[in-house]
Design a protein around this nucleic acid. Structure first.
Lengths: 337, 337
DNA sequence: CTGTTAGCGCTTTCAG
DNA sequence: CTGAAAGCGCTAACAG
């Protein structure tokens, strides 16, 4: 029913293998017969069967995108990157297939099974798994090209792409300091996530450099959610009422903080300066527009795709760090003078 | 190198076909041999090759998710639904593969080619294509199950899921009216998008019902973007300074409006009431928390997946309308009294 | 330059 | 209940 290579062969009085060669631009096919084949293919509406090709070549053009299962709210980065990954990959003839793993039910070997059953050409592991998650062990033993985001995995066929979190947090904190703030709070995300550690490191580094002492109650851990940020800023301010600025480890918590603060009669940035992290596009339309550290999701996504291609084509792995950029908007007040 | 059904057969002294039957729970396989096969499969680490299965069955378990190519900012709905679609589908043993089409370069037949080359089991067309886009013609002639979102396509194997936009816009406008507003502006999205027409219809319906006259300059068309919303609200207010409320056809424009208005010294909702549409989760953390019409993306996504399954399994198509819900937060002021 | 042949891994008759 | 054999659509090795 679906027209196949045989139909073309019959139609052109050729052997299927010749048709195959013609279709795939292989060596030595008379230009004329090639044209005949191409024309017939078009005319008959031939569409190659990828499963057949995959079967015989034992390898396809599918790239698995692996994400932790959760709702959209929790993974802005994934969605920001996906279109770019998808596009770049398709420029190399690859297609993407998305798999969501429940991080709490993951069992070792699952990833590998997935790869085998679809004969995946490679995979990209999105951020969001805990830093010591089992999946990273599996990746170490993979003999399939892979790119891991935000986590470093040492292995033959695995590259990783990171945001330079320390740098980003450092920039944010420096910005606060240079605007006259010295009593700065920090609302961090869950401790068991790698990037949280790094963002904290950057925060502390900036403070140390400026000789500002960090009191332990200036730092609070929350859950990266809007509500979490709102609750956190309140208890932070309760513990340390003299804070003039708060650095939030993501934009969502920053917005949650601003929003609850506003309901409590605060005016941002007049009463408290806020800076976020992530650079969600919506921050530009926030009230006030949110000063934040913007991950370069476009670059991150593109780089992930390119790194994967490099492993596939040249077996060349690498570790890249992409620097995020401080975007100064209106949520920080200059309190010098 | 990859272990196959033959290896199991050899290992168990069986014929590959028996192994196949055992593995697939087919009729008549002695429970004992079945167990032997299962054990061997586990022991040898057998992983079935989907391409082989697809090839012989001429059908796989892949569902194509079709989106218009653009960056994440432009398609919050897609991302909100994706996790639910993905999960529901995988509960039925289906996997999802994402294809982004450039809406301006789409040529007729492309979708069908895609389906053929991967022998897709079905596909879901996400919102975002223009209402008269060629892709919808192609869907009409498809002999593959499909579900279309936000657009109605009449066809044998095609269901569609809609948000009841008219209802949503009606609710929003009613809410404004019941809070005492009668001079209400409307910032709509691009005219060539189907949902914009419907949202406008709901808006006008509510106004008519309450005997409120609509002046033509109370309605302005923008582009669904944050910046667009900001610019639109300014010129709207310029044309009609007596407006006390503005209904925006999406949250992004609503936020853009609030944000630029704030920079111009307005205080929302004191000086102007705003209601959005979409129910982006971030609206809850907006300043002020945004009153909006919330699309039930969870239900929408789940429904899309279920409808597709129903076509696949029972050839049963349907047209569903999902009612969005007015979420009352803090961006509307009651001006009665 | 083109045809022949074999086989990728699996399912599905059809026999036994 | 199990085996034998054919074939899905394609590619690759080897002849010619």
């Amino acid at each position: 029913m679906n027209i196949s290579i045989k139909d073309i062969a019959r139609h052109c009085n050729l052997n299927p293998s010749t048709v195959s060669r013609a279709l795939n631009n292989k060596y030595g096919v008379k230009p004329e017969t090639k044209k005949r084949v191409m024309d017939a293919a078009r005319e008959l509406g031939y569409v190659p069967s990828l499963s057949a090709r995959e079967l015989v070549k034992q390898e396809g053009n599918l790239i698995g995108i692996i994400i932790p299962e959760s709702d959209a709210e929790a993974q802005p980065a994934f969605f920001a990157m996906l279109p770019y990954i998808n596009k770049k990959l398709s420029a190399y003839g690859m297609e993407t297939i998305i798999y969501a793993f429940d991080p709490y039910r993951y069992i070792n070997g699952e990833l590998n099974k997935l790869i085998q059953k679809r004969r995946l050409r490679g995979c990209i592991i999105m951020p969001g798994f805990m830093k010591e998650h089992k999946i990273y062990e599996d990746i170490r033993d993979l003999n399939t090209p892979s790119v891991v985001m935000e986590v470093t995995v040492q292995s033959e066929l695995c590259s990783s792409i990171h945001t330079d979190e320390v740098y980003g947090a450092y920039q944010a904190t420096k910005h606060l300091i240079s605007n006259g703030h010295s009593r700065i709070g920090f609302i961090n995300g869950p401790e068991y996530i790698q990037i949280c550690e790094e963002r904290r490191e950057g925060f502390e580094k900036a403070l140390h450099e400026s000789g500002i002492l960090i009191k332990s109650h200036d730092i609070i851990y929350s859950d990266f959610s809007g509500n979490g940020g709102g609750a956190a800023v309140l208890s932070l301010l309760d513990q340390a009422p003299d804070l003039t600025a708060v650095f939030c480890a993501n934009d969502l918590m920053a917005m949650g903080a601003v929003s609850t603060l506003a309901e409590h009669g605060y005016c941002i940035p007049r009463d408290l300066s806020i800076v976020g992290f992530d650079g969600m596009f919506i921050g530009a339309y926030y009230n006030p527009p949110l000063t934040t550290v913007q991950n370069d999701d476009v670059k991150l996504g593109l780089q992930a795709a390119e790194s994967l291609i490099r492993i596939i084509e040249e077996k060349h792995t690498s570790q890249e760090w992409i620097k995020p950029e401080l975007i100064i908007r209106k949520s920080v007040q200059n309190i010098l003078s």
